[in-house]
Design a protein around this nucleic acid. Structure first.
Length: 424
RNA sequence: GCGGGUGUAGCUCAGGUGGUUAGAGCGCCUGGUUGUGGCCCAGGAGGUCGUGGGUUCAAGUCCCAUCACUCGCCCCA
């Protein structure tokens, strides 16, 4: 009941039945990306700690307390980190390979695990799988819209209906600085209404006070200043254009001035897909524009937009929507050999089926015929091929159709043809 | 890091106020058919009652600790 070794807290095993669902989900993602023209990126699981500190932001929770960082065996040792998100690594790869010199616009996507040291709960794990896109090189609102639309199409293709798209703009750094000052001033007048945590947040990242789920904070910030009032024409026009493009595509969304994303690199557009069937961890995915990130990590000033989706949460939501088809790894043929010679024949015949592209299996436990038939039934085998030593001597075998009851005698030389012909 | 809930067979769960060999359903194995599955019938295997300590003549049941899982806060995917 309590095995000596267990998977670590927040880390999970995917057994074959569940893997089938993941293959389905990953297939949907790949197909979506094929249609959108994004190329797949496969990145290292580990990067230098410095990359995340600079890219994601020192002050963020992710960097300050959630990273799996450790020293390697180098001399001197280097601090390396299990990636807590993939955007920083993607940006690093883009800079490292000087992609910008070869193409005006880069369209990349990735699917893979990320790691954060957090208290696990529903929809939150220490190892989780993310799907993300990075659209690098375009400053235009059309780029923001394409990324958001890809997210909408993904969610729709997974049968998830019960979700909400929240949209906001965080402005450019100067605008945000001005807004932060005004917000801080406002929050100071409400100090006695705010929660302890929000008072602490005022020091580190005042915008995040807006994001609090605590009732007192929600009430206290109801008439807080809005960032919209601090935007210059360009940022405002950008935001309006993004909305116009979404309207034109017939995509419903809500503008939420309290939407604040936790990572420092966002500029202007920020969005989040909120799953309404999920628990407290209800962000299916989110993203936005990060025009400063690439420069921040030492590359040329380059605009970019992207999103990250939580594959684990998409899985939960798709299952809740009943969208995941039942899949069984059905066997087509089970071969039963009765007798010593026939057992050899069964193995050879099974392999012949397999080499012909037919899913086949035979007994590996030395079990009785009855038990083998049970196994064939359990595995949902369409046909069972049966032969004993005498039949083999006569060059024949029985082919039984497990869906009906009929059984026919077949020449051994015809076995493959008969089963192959009937398999569809 | 902080709170709440739960830990009995592979799985889902029963086991008022402590009392002798800890149960069910499903699953698994064998047989009923000396070479034929599903249904049915019969039998069987499988549990240090999460772990450690304590109270008691006696603990699955009460107390303490601990671990794991789970939900929420925080944060985010």
């Amino acid at each position: 009941m309590s095995p000596r070794y267990q998977s670590l807290k927040g880390f999970r095993d995917m057994l074959p039945e569940e893997s089938l669902r993941w293959q389905w989900l990953e297939g949907k993602v790949r197909e979506l990306m094929r249609r959108y023209g994004y190329g797949q990126l496969r990145l290292p699981l580990v990067e230098s700690t410095e990359l995340f500190a600079r890219g994601v932001g020192e002050g963020t929770d992710v960097v300050s307390k959630e990273m799996y960082s450790f020293l390697d065996k180098g001399d001197p040792p280097e601090s390396i980190t299990l990636r807590p998100e993939l955007t920083a690594g993607a940006a690093r790869a883009w800079v490292q390979h000087e992609i910008g010199k070869n193409q005006g616009l880069t369209k990349w996507y990735y699917v893979g695990p990320a790691f954060r040291y957090e208290q696990p709960q529903s929809g939150r794990y220490r190892q989780f799988t993310t799907f993300g896109v990075e659209l690098i090189g375009s400053p235009l609102p059309e780029a923001d819209a394409e990324v958001i639309l890809a997210g909408v199409d993904l969610i729709e293709s997974l049968g998830i209906r019960n979700y909400r798209l929240r949209l906001n703009t965080l402005g450019m750094p100067e605008e945000r600085t001005a807004y932060r000052a005004a917000l801080l001033e406002f929050l100071n007048t409400r100090r006695n209404q705010l929660s302890q945590e929000s008072l602490r947040r005022m020091e580190s990242n005042p915008l995040r006070v807006l994001d609090s789920k605590k009732e007192e904070d929600v009430a206290a910030t109801a008439d807080a200043p809005k960032i919209l009032d601090f935007l210059a024409h360009e940022s405002l026009a950008h935001f309006n254009r993004v909305q116009g493009l979404l309207d034109g595509a017939g995509v419903p969304y809500v503008v939420d001035h309290k939407l604040v994303r936790g990572l420092d690199y966002y500029t202007r557009t920020a969005f989040e897909f909120q799953g309404l069937d999920l628990g407290a961890q209800d962000a299916l995915g989110g993203g936005g524009r990060y025009d400063g990130l690439i420069e921040q990590i030492g590359g040329p000033a380059t605009p970019a937009v992207g999103f990250g989706f939580g594959m684990d949460r998409l899985m939960i939501a798709a299952q809740a929507a009943g969208a995941i088809p039942d899949q069984q790894a059905d066997l087509q043929v089970f071969v039963v050999g009765l007798g010593d010679a026939a057992r050899d024949w069964a193995m050879q015949t099974t392999r012949a089926f397999r080499q012909a592209g037919i899913a086949a299996d035979c007994d590996l436990l030395g079990r009785s015929m009855k038990a083998q038939m049970r196994e064939a039934n359990r595995r949902n085998a369409r046909y069972v091929v049966i032969a004993g030593d005498n039949e083999l001597a006569a060059g024949k075998a029985q082919v039984k159709d497990m869906q009906g009851h009929d059984q026919q005698e077949v020449e051994l030389t015809e076995l493959l043809n008969v089963v192959a012909a009937r398999k569809q």
